[in-house]
Computed example of a mutant assay.
Amino acid sequence: METTNRFDTAIKKLYKAFHSNTLNPECCKQCAVGNILDHTDSWKHLSDEHGSTKLNYVGLVHQNFGRTFNGYTPHELLNVEAIFLKACGYQLPLHHNNNKPIHPTDKNILFKGLSAVVTFLCELDGIPNVMDYTKLFEFEHDQMSL
């Protein structure tokens, strides 16, 4: 399967973060987007609230000028983060009064978040969902179909 450079790079960073325990939904440098952007938090200035998909003035300027960050537009990055947080069980936008998981860095919670992000990244680049395991179980006339 052919993928894009930005997809491959993002997946490698997220995989590494997951397995090295440097993935944390509540830290702007260690969340999904923070990891994709090399542990920087400058992306948080694209929106007024963590978890929001609404670009603020700074985000709109970057979006309208066609600026990308490691291959992703500001709007794409905000969507990645919102998808990650929702799949991890957060009520958006992040706020200390909103619902959130009891153990946000639990591997099962993080895996749900990453699965949703990978699905979205596949959609963005028009590639088949690499998280879709149903093809492994498809059979045709008692033979495996590949």
Rank of each mutant, 00 (worst) to 15 (best):
D106I: 13
I36W: 15
E81C: 06
L124S: 02
M131F: 06
H141N: 05
R67H: 04
Y133I: 04
Y133W: 06
L85G: 05
L85A: 07
H103F: 00
C31E: 13
N98T: 08
M1S: 15
H75K: 15
S52H: 13
G51A: 15
I127N: 14
D125F: 10
A87F: 06
C88I: 04
H39A: 14
L136F: 04
Q91G: 07
K44R: 07
R67N: 10
K12Y: 04
S145D: 05
H75N: 11
H103L: 01
F18R: 02
T3H: 15
D38G: 04
A116F: 11
H96A: 12
K112G: 13
L46D: 11
P74Q: 14
D38I: 07
T119Y: 04
Y133E: 07
K100L: 12
T53H: 09
Y15I: 03
T40S: 06
K13V: 01
E76S: 08
E2N: 08
Y90A: 08
S115W: 02
F7A: 09
L46K: 11
K54C: 07
H45V: 12
D8T: 00
S52G: 13
D125I: 12
K100G: 09
L14D: 01
K16N: 08
F84L: 14
Q30L: 10
G126P: 00
T119N: 11
Y72R: 04
K44Y: 00
C27I: 07
D48Q: 14
L121T: 03
P101M: 04
T40N: 05
F111R: 15
A32E: 03
S20C: 12
H75W: 09
L146P: 06
T53A: 07
E26V: 01
S47M: 07
D125S: 12
P93T: 06
P128Y: 13
V117K: 03
T134A: 07
H19P: 02
H96E: 10
S145L: 11
Q143S: 13
I127D: 08
G51Y: 14
S47T: 15
N70K: 12
N5L: 14
H45A: 15
P93W: 03
Y15M: 02
P101H: 02
K135R: 13
K100T: 12
G66K: 02
C122F: 04
L110S: 00
S145Q: 10
